[in-house]
């Protein structure tokens, strides 16, 4: 019980953020028209690529002699970049088509 309390104390700010973000995430996309479901999923997919920040930190803190950490870290940054860049570019491509139609 004590450790639970300590944990809540230690992470209380983060827990607030989590709870607010859950409601915000639901609220923000609550009224999305079904036309935009695919681009929205793709855009959200790119946003969770923010995990790359963790990969960069891991990579940057890796010991220069620790090859395993370097290789795994390199892979993590690489995959994270693929997620971010690929995700945003694919979404942009999808939305480009909506725009072309709009200008007509």
């Amino acid at each position: 019980m004590d450790s639970m309390m300590n944990w809540l104390q230690e992470y209380q700010e983060m827990i607030y953020v989590v709870i607010l973000m859950i409601f915000l995430g639901i609220e923000v996309i609550g009224r999305v028209p079904s036309v935009l479901h695919t681009p929205l999923m793709s855009g959200a997919n790119a946003i969770h690529g923010v995990v790359i920040i963790g990969a960069i930190i891991v990579m940057g803190q890796a010991d220069a002699n620790n090859w395993l950490a370097l290789v795994l870290g390199f892979l993590a940054v690489l995959l994270g970049t693929l997620n971010v860049v690929g995700g945003f570019v694919v979404t942009d491509r999808m939305l480009e088509m909506f725009k072309a139609k709009k200008s007509k």
Binding site: M14, V17, V18, M21, I22, F23, L24, G25, I26, V28, I29, G30, V32, H37, L40, M41, A44, N45, I47, H48, V50, V51, I53, G54, I57
Partner: peptide, 18 residues
């Protein structure tokens, strides 16, 4: 890291709703 936290949870919640 709050950027990772907000981005992650936002997508987690929105993705679940979707």
């Amino acid at each position: 890291n709050k950027a990772m936290l907000t981005g992650g949870i936002l997508v987690g919640a929105a993705g679940t709703l979707l």
